[in-house]
Every structure is written in C-alpha cells, then in structure tokens.
C-alpha cells in the first residue's frame, strides 16, 4: 500500500467512523419466575426496546438471576423484581444496590411505598391506591362491585388499545397488572438508556427519578381502571 493509499484509508476511516454510532449493549437483571405475567411483560418490553435499539443503536438482553446470586453480580444497570414484598424490600435495602434502580413489578404492598427507599420504583398501584379508587367508585355507584387495577385489557385510551393488542398478539394472553408493570419497567429503562447513552446504575436512577415525562400509555397521570364483576 502506498503512502497515499494508506493516507486515504486513514482519512476514510476518520470520515466514516464517527457516523457509525457504537451499539450500546445493555444487560438487565431479573429476579422472579421465568413464566407468568410479569415475565411476559418484561419480554414484551425487551422486544420493543430492541426494536427501538435497532434504530438508535442499543441492544438489550435479560439475565434471570436468583435472589442468592445477586451478591455475585458486579455490574448492574437495573434490577427487575417479581417477588413478594419481603423479598423486594430485602433487595432494595441491600447496600450493594443502594444506587441501582430496583423495580417492583408485582407487589401492591403499602409498606413498600411507605418505606420511601430512593432506589425502589413501584410500578403498579398500591393496596391503598386501589382501595381509594374503589371507595370513589362506590360513592358514585353504591351497587358497584368494582375492583381497581393498574391495567385492564379493555383500556383503550392513550394508545392502550394498541399496547393490549400487540401484547395479546405476541404473548398469546391478555395484558394484566403485572404484565403492564414488566413492560413499563423495561420501557422506562430503554428510554433512559436512549436519552442518557449510559448504562450506569446511578445515572439511570437519577434519570428515572428526575425525568419530566414518561409515556407508559396512560396519558401521563396515574389512572385506575375498574371492572364490574
């Protein structure tokens, strides 16, 4: 290769490389059963995060881990936990994950909300929130046997129709509270990675807690759908 040729090659590399953005590899960790609603919701979220990532240069993978394996983890962006309140609290309170986002996908325990842990992100509605919604419903309609949920397959507004429809199409079951929580957690994380271009847990936690607006297909504010039995 002549000097001119290698010079041109170097120039070409210089011109080409900066426009080919590096793909960010993101590994998310999941604690819980690898079947059931929360798992399927996380899978749906992962599929959609990877579709977004194809365009924006991110690749997501999910690693299921047992509660016992957590201590062995070195680098974690976020933990998705589908477990009971006690287990979720134990993970969120551990020093190891004090600056790591810990998503509660399954527990409606009020204690988890009142614990006020800065790294614990409760996705679904709490028992108290659901009870309040039911009280309001009964005040309006005394015969109502409604029970409150975070999510419902007949919810249509704010593109919930589309989300319910593609979840059913892909996963073969209706989207319920836990599935929506799993999907929401991954969507928030993929939004965070796309916007911060970082996989660092503390960067992610700061972004998740301080970002102005997330679109979890509920139109912004929390909304509780009721169902008459």
């Amino acid at each position: 290769m002549t000097t001119i040729q290698s010079g041109l090659l170097a120039l070409l590399c210089f011109l080409v490389l900066p426009v080919q953005a590096e793909v960010i590899e993101v590994e998310l960790h999941y604690v819980g059963p690898t079947e059931g609603s929360a798992w399927l919701g996380v899978q749906q979220g992962l599929d959609e995060a990877n579709l977004q990532g194809e365009f924006l240069g991110q690749k997501y993978s999910l690693k299921p881990v047992s509660a016992d394996e957590l201590v062995t983890l070195k680098s974690v962006t976020a933990l998705l936990v589908a477990a009971d309140a006690e287990q979720i609290l134990a993970v969120a309170q551990s020093k190891q994950f004090a600056s790591t986002p810990v998503f509660n996908l399954t527990s409606d325990s009020d204690a988890l909300r009142s614990a006020c842990l800065p790294n614990l992100l409760n996705i679904g509605a709490s028992q108290k929130m659901k009870q309040d919604a039911e009280v309001q419903m009964v005040a309006k309609n005394p015969d109502s046997k409604a029970h409150a949920q975070s999510w419902h397959q007949d919810f249509k507004k704010f593109a919930a129709r589309q989300l319910n429809s593609r979840f059913l199409k892909t996963q073969g079951v209706i989207m319920d509270d836990d599935a929506w929580a799993g999907w929401t957690a991954v969507k928030m994380l993929s939004g965070g990675v796309a916007r911060t271009q970082s996989t660092d847990a503390s960067v992610m936690l700061d972004f998740l807690k301080n970002v102005a607006a997330f679109d979890v297909q509920k139109g912004g504010a929390p909304l509780f759908v009721t169902q008459d039995n």
């Binding site: 959609e48 579709l51 977004q52 365009f55 924006l56 593109a159 589309q162 989300l163 939004g191 796309a194 679109d215 297909q217």
Partner: peptide
C-alpha cells in the same frame, strides 16, 4: 409514538436515513 422517534425516509431509496 411509542418509541419516541422521528424517522427520516429518503424517498429515492425508500430507506430510513436518520432516527
């Protein structure tokens, strides 16, 4: 809407050229 992107499609090649 759900993935918060504006895609630019080149109408000659019909390829997405920017996100």
């Amino acid at each position: 809407e759900s993935t918060n992107m504006v895609h630019i499609i080149d109408t000659e090649t019909h390829k997405v050229v920017a996100n």
